[in-house]
């Protein structure tokens, strides 16, 4: 699993190589990205407005336009193994400005889903959120210091969510188990 590992020379060289090799293309990947994202990624004409709008671009090697190119050309491995995939803050600035009415943000979300599905490295914190929600219903659960403050404010010590009504948690677990998500997160995190 990555840590944001740019220290892998082989991967770095591969990602630096901007030549296009027909054999790297997987048409199914383009189709899957399009379906999962629900946006018209094939309409991209590579103008770069998205990268120009991106708060992550000036401070990293992350380029949303490059990921759009990968979506069109079906460059699955390049897209899913690139650690930059996880630097999108999902701010949707690119999506609001794209002259082709594409939602590049949703292309990134689709690629992240596919990275998880195909066993590519996924950042730990994403999987830990799954575990926390499975256990408590909350991605950010309550704690004792906060309970004391809530009481002081005249609020119940725990909010009227799954924290007060844990009888709702089994239902949540059923939903997550339906997709086998918790088991997968556990497995990947234990392989650390």
């Amino acid at each position: 699993m990555v840590e944001k590992n740019y220290g892998n020379p082989e991967l770095e060289n591969k990602l630096r190589d901007r030549n296009y090799y027909v054999t790297d293309s997987n048409k199914d990947f383009s189709a899957e990205v399009k379906k999962l994202s629900g946006t018209i990624s094939h309409m991209c004409y590579q103008c770069g407005t998205c990268t120009g709008s991106c708060p992550s671009a000036p401070r990293s090697s992350y380029r949303i336009r490059v990921f759009m190119r990968r979506a069109i050309l079906g460059l699955e491995e390049e897209a899913l193994s690139d650690p930059d995939l996880w630097l999108c803050t999902t701010c949707y600035s690119c999506s609001d400005r794209c002259p082709r009415d594409i939602l590049p943000t949703d292309v990134i979300m689709a690629m992240r889903n596919l990275a998880f599905k195909t066993g590519h490295a996924v950042p730990k914190n994403f999987l830990q959120t799954v575990q926390l929600i499975y256990k408590t219903g909350h991605g950010v659960p309550n704690n004792d210091a906060n309970r004391a403050v809530r009481e002081r404010l005249g609020l119940p010590r725990d909010p009227p969510t799954t924290h007060t009504y844990p009888e709702y948690i089994p239902g949540i677990q059923k939903i997550i188990d339906h997709y086998n998500l918790k088991a997968e997160a556990d497995r990947i995190l234990s392989e650390e």
Partner: peptide
Amino acid sequence: KGASCCPAPGAFGSID
């Protein structure tokens, strides 16, 4: 009553 995390669109939605 019984609401949960929304769930987190970034961390959770990115996975599935």
